[in-house]
Design a protein around this nucleic acid. Structure first.
Lengths: 214, 214, 214, 214
DNA sequence: CATGAATGAGTGTTCATTCAT
DNA sequence: TATGAATGAACACTCATTCAT
């Protein structure tokens, strides 16, 4: 039998004992969910605990306070962004296929949801703890972006007449995806889908137009 | 020894009776301050009232609940977006001046901070009350965008060979500004400034290139 | 249990609005009761509030924390000890009547219960916050004792051959009353009564014998 | 019911020191420490266990509850009071030496601190559980006092003209020591020392005067 | 048997909201 | 109307106690 999923919504009074590390991860997942949904103040330890499959008091066996849990969460979400598989524009193939894979990377894929949740968390909490978010930006996000940037530049150098790109130009290539992210965050999944699809299509069109020519 | 009360206001607690509308506006200002600073959950009615110069109970003479106050606030801050001097691309003048005024409108000016605040509120609120945000999107934002869209289209019809614009294409024209907002939110005022300037410059360049044409 | 205090212990859900000072005093009375009965940790804000006729939250409108309430309580019980009517051994009348009034003062009367409660509070909490209790001793109790001491000395100078008294001798005159207090505290009202009566009788006998003199 | 120890009572021959018993003693020591420091409510099982070198759950293998631990503690600390080497006024020697040894017993020695701790516990407990304290009084303290009383009486019968002593008179002989204990509790070790010394001196003086006879 | 994860019943405190004055 | 006392419903956190391993 498979083990119970981490979000066991039913309410059997069974006491399930888990290794500390596993439970800890469940709690962190639940916390990401809650904090990004409701913000730090809006989130309740009770809900986080329930999502993690334990009671409020149980959570305190793993994290000493709500604040500490939040900090731990920020710590854990800072790493993966940098270390995930460095995407590289395939230097072979047509321009179209290169652009497509670039866009596929930017717009949704399997990891998008989680990344979106993290983004939402950071945005929502950027008011409460700006320094922490800046730190995240410096340590995690900026390197990530620069990696992407270098990949794009190296591709362009090889295949187009463009020689260098300003950071502003690079940013432009990402901006529609950021817009899409906002739509996704704000107006939710379904009604956002068409909007995003349209944006992506135009994004593709414009990129091709700008890159293809000379 | 002097006795220093903890609530040390400039005026010693006099019961100033203000016209309802004025008081209401004070409250709304205070509310925007509080909500944007602490989020909906983090904000307290007590603080809002104090900032507005009245007591907690006094506030309830003007707004029936914290929720209602928040709704009213959203209404007042969303309205201007729609009704503010409907920007129209001046059909006279050069393309450059038209684009410049478009960009000036999009990118920062006195209203940027306020817009940022509103955006953050919407983000949090979209977690707390998605329907309300969708409603805002339908009732306020979409018409606003469409107005802009029509202005842009009409301009293009007159001056370029472009005939119609998809919503995705329109969105693209805004997206770099959204990215700028994102930077502003996350990495804050000063270090974000140069980033944003670069984006705006590239934005201008691309728009001119795409529109001028053919 | 003991008799009901001035506040109604029944539970009508009526909201009774009282002047701040009055309610504050109710709370302090209730707090003295609770703290001396259960100690600081054992006492609950809920019970104190209920005894004072309000809810837990209502109490916090008058005292900012349990700790603050405790401190305020200590402050209020420190004053009266010093300022209460300075008892003086009537310099007229027989030795017997003088001793009797001395003993009546020491052993119970109307104020005894309250004094006992305060004593119990101080003893119980002398472990938790020794400094605070020492402070009480220096500021309130020592002066009070010294006043009594001077009264006793002045009486003896006039009527007996004793000239001076050491503090140890003075203390001795009080010590049986302290013992009585302990009985009262520990084995409670009824079964303690006879014990105390016997102590008082012997106390009287010894005092007369020692003073009557020579 | 009485103690339910895991050691089999039916075979008293085997007096092997079980680790269990040792640990039990550790726990009791830790408990006395904690309870006297923080009171019953203030004490935590966690801290007691840690002081005893085991975990919280481990403690429950030895005592079924915090309450039971406290009871057991009271049992162990009350017992010695009754059974300790029954002090008897040496019927030989001078009155002075007899009184001195009586006073030495009453006033501090190595056991004073412990007795103080116990006394404070009883004070707190007398608020929380008056019956238990009355029970202690009946079962433990009263016999102890009576033993002392008989010793004193028998001595007096032999050496003085005093024939009987009322309980009140006996009590009087102890009361200054109670006062001393009171000082010790309230104003602490150092500054209490001189006060206590003075009391003891006067106590001695008065006893000699009263007993030395006529 | 001892441990650490887990729990249920509080406990102090806050807060949006109401009501009598 | 405006106020301040009062409330009920949380909420973060603690703790005595249990249970699976």
């Amino acid at each position: 039998m498979t083990q119970t999923s981490k979000t066991d919504n039913s309410s059997p009074r069974k006491r399930t004992r888990l290794p500390s590390e596993v439970r800890r991860q469940y709690i962190l997942d639940a916390a990401l969910d809650e904090f990004s949904m409701s913000g730090f103040e809006g989130a309740t330890v009770e809900r986080i605990a329930r999502k993690a499959g334990i009671t409020k008091a149980g959570l305190y066996a793993h994290f000493t306070s709500k604040e500490a849990l939040f900090e731990a969460l920020l710590d854990t979400i800072m790493l993966p962004v940098v270390t995930d598989d460095a995407w590289v524009l395939s230097s072979e193939g047509t321009l179209e296929s290169a652009v497509d894979s670039f866009l596929d990377m930017l717009y949704g894929d399997s990891k998008t949801t989680r990344r979106l949740t993290i983004m939402r968390l950071l945005l929502v909490e950027s008011g409460r703890n700006p320094q922490r978010v800046q730190q995240w930006y410096q340590q995690s996000y900026r390197p990530y972006i620069q990696k992407r940037q270098r990949a794009l530049e190296s591709y362009l150098r090889q295949h187009t007449s463009h020689t260098t790109l300003t950071s502003g130009q690079i940013a432009l290539a990402f901006s529609p995806a950021v817009l899409a992210m906002f739509w996704q965050m704000i107006i939710g999944g379904e009604s956002a889908a068409s909007e995003i699809a349209a944006i992506k299509a135009s994004h593709r069109e414009v990129m091709l137009r700008l890159l293809s020519t000379d």
